[in-house]
């Protein structure tokens, strides 16, 4: 320990002048645009880029910011709430003008929101809301998960009604720690309520947003109930698991073919688009990622201009199906991913 003291003295003697020298260099340069006005800088932090939806959302926000000539600083927390808090604090250190955040979850983001609030930096949560708290100042931009799921499942029930027979149904639910997953589960049951004569729910598969768990759960449910003919997945990103399980049970057939399982999902990703084009998918609820990105950036600009606005902006989304695919596909982010 004694040998450490001279070493630390040396270290300090190096660090102090360096810090003094650099303190002037550490300040964020204020960029200006062509008309000489200060250019805004926005920090964009996503919890993960592990699914196509988040990549599409990330790109949509960056594109919206670029369109408005706003500088971007980005970081990804890679699923780690502690790292996410550090990254938001680095945005504060960089003195960004606004923050767009996709939190790890609704609760662990609270210290990050507080850090932004204390620094007076407006913050918008994209697609995943924070736990309600009167002390926090923020805007949530989220899909209306419950309503959109209800509409999607109602469309699927209508197809079931047209088939003229009663269907046994399976619902694959997400991580119930995620408020979006809860909204989708509730929306599913809202739609089924009152339609029990057409659809009887016989299996509820918990996935925790994990493809392997979803696949195992769907396989087990199909073994226990081989006559399932109606499947709703709370996210399109679980479709590869659902399709694999349906194929192994010889139940994956196109619309109109005998043995077709009425299939629906939520998100509007590239897999769902391809399944719609190929004629296997009945419907999916599309989150309008472009609408959400536009609203998130606008909410930041409104906050900077001291304009008051709602603290919750809902994306109504839309149901896409075989009947409106051509008309709606340009707003379906998954279709644009496929085109790219």
């Amino acid at each position: 320990m004694k040998s450490l003291i001279p070493t630390f003295t040396k270290v300090l003697s190096l660090m102090l002048p360096a810090a003094m020298l650099l303190s002037g260099c550490g300040k964020s340069p204020e960029a200006t645009n062509s008309s000489g006005e200060k250019q805004l800088t926005v920090g964009v932090n996503f919890e993960t880029l592990q699914t196509e939806y988040w990549v599409a959302g990330f790109e949509a926000i960056k594109s919206e910011l670029k369109k408005r000539n706003i500088q971007i600083v980005e970081s990804i927390a890679d699923g780690d709430a502690n790292r996410q808090l550090q990254q938001v604090r680095t945005f504060v250190t960089r003195k960004v003008d606004g923050i767009v955040l996709v939190p790890k979850d609704s609760k662990t983001c609270v210290p990050a929101i507080k850090a932004a609030n204390e620094a007076g930096i407006p913050i918008v949560l994209f697609n995943r809301p924070a736990a309600e708290s009167p002390d926090l100042k923020l805007v949530n931009v989220v899909a209306d998960n419950r309503t959109l799921t209800r509409e999607t499942v109602a469309f699927m029930i209508e197809q079931a009604r047209k088939s003229g027979k009663k269907h046994k149904a399976m619902v694959i639910i997400g991580d119930l720690g995620d408020i979006n997953a809860v909204g989708r589960k509730d929306g599913f049951y809202d739609a089924v309520k009152g339609n029990e004569a057409i659809v009887e729910v016989v299996a509820e598969v918990p996935s925790e947003w994990n493809q392997e768990k979803a696949r195992a759960g769907v396989v087990n449910a199909l073994q226990a109930n081989p006559d399932i003919s109606f499947v709703f997945s709370s996210s399109d990103f679980l479709f590869p698991s659902v399709v694999a399980a349906l194929k192994s049970a010889n139940k994956y057939h196109k619309l109109g073919e005998p043995g077709h399982v009425i299939l629906g999902g939520f998100d509007g990703d590239a897999t769902a688009y391809q399944m719609l084009v190929d004629g296997y998918l009945d419907a999916t609820g599309v989150q309008d990622v472009y609408f959400e990105a536009e609203q998130a950036v606008q909410a930041l600009l409104d906050a900077l201009a001291k304009k008051s606005g709602p603290s919750m902006i809902l994306d109504p989304g839309f149901v896409i199906h075989q009947g409106n695919l051509q008309e709606k596909k340009s707003r379906m982010w998954g279709a644009n991913v496929v085109r790219k």
Binding site: A18, A19, L22, S23, C25, G26, K27, S28, P29, N82, R83, L85, Q86, R89, T90, V92, T93, R94, K95
Partner: peptide, 19 residues
């Protein structure tokens, strides 16, 4: 430090420490 805005600042030191 010369190329990284805020790297040598006190608030960033606190951020690093908290992490």
């Amino acid at each position: 430090a010369p190329f990284t805005p805020g790297f040598a600042s006190w608030s960033n030191f606190q951020t690093i420490l908290a992490y």
